[in-house]
Design a protein around this nucleic acid. Sequence first.
DNA 1: AGAAATACTTACTACTTAGTAAGTTACTTT
DNA 2: AAAGTAACTTACTAAGTAGTAAGTATTTCT
Lengths: 190, 190
Amino acid sequence: MTVRPTDTKEEILRLGTELIQVYGYNAFSYADISKKLDIKNAAVHYHFPGKEDLLAGIIDQYIQRYKELGARINAPGITAKQKLDVFISRYTDLCEQNKICIIGSVCSDYNTMPESVKAKLGELIEMVLGMVEKVLRQGKKTGELNFPETARVKSLLIMTNLAAGVQLARITGKKDYTAICKSIIDQVSV
Amino acid sequence: MTVRPTDTKEEILRLGTELIQVYGYNAFSYADISKKLDIKNAAVHYHFPGKEDLLAGIIDQYIQRYKELGARINAPGITAKQKLDVFISRYTDLCEQNKICIIGSVCSDYNTMPESVKAKLGELIEMVLGMVEKVLRQGKKTGELNFPETARVKSLLIMTNLAAGVQLARITGKKDYTAICKSIIDQVSV
DNA sequence: AGAAATACTTACTACTTAGTAAGTTACTTT
DNA sequence: AAAGTAACTTACTAAGTAGTAAGTATTTCT
């Protein structure tokens, strides 16, 4: 088992993710990727034959990372509030880099995507919502958190606040995003 | 004052708006517009020299319509809750047509836009937020509505719920959007 | 009636787009 | 050592992109 000579494929995924978060899916081309990585555009096609394959790969990687996050979160000794903070901080990180969530970004172009990618995106969203829902439900059960809505609906409210919050921050500034985050915490605090 | 022989310019604005709401700003071309309106693509360029001029025109029209909405809302005899419903129903209409809010749509492509359009988009958002904020503040004052946050922050929370709610509905279905709307109302009810 | 403006069409250009087929290099397996 | 495979590059194509210059028909102004 030798060290991989190159990790071009991973670099493409990384840059592709960034381009979606910064400029949007239909606003970047294979040329943008190949130029920045100093490879030929055919090299990008070698790893991801079509642009939809690249998008599928990016979403797959996102799903994988959320799964890892889920495993980390389930370690003992972490409070529900801390778990919720983990989700919020992912969006805060995006906000600070002037990026937006890929789900929100790709959603604008949703109707230009093939069914296979639409399904993958649905899988990702349901996973994230399910994870937040679980944290909320458990937090409510142990008395750590409190809110009048069901855990499912509260997860919808929180995730829409965060997703649109980072989008808004781009235009009106980060102050609004900060206020949103503070309110999310306040709303579930006992 | 005669009847305009054609209203091509308005048809372009209408179709452009629809294309942004359905496919996204960077996913449609002047050819999409000219084909559907059965005109030549140069005719679109005649009315809107560049694509950014078209986007600016679309946002201007949006601002105009929100101003009209604001005037209608200020008529006597309308309760704060009814006013809030007017805003919500605009998003509900979008949701039913599988469209998303142009603000949310264009936000993905924000960094591909010229400064002039960015400024216009900021103007639109501040206007909408300001209008919702005003409704909330007045409703709280008269005792019609109640919420722990400031009117500004509550308007941020509601608008992010709605904007991301219609985006989400595209992928996970309209049921989630309906639940979000119900919660928004419940949260401000006394 | 003549001039000017409006709202286009015709006919194009330069460029970018995703995508491909065939060749090259270097490492790995047999 | 030969064959195969992985990871590319070279060199191209067909289609689409925004955008323009010049011409035309129709209405409006003077």
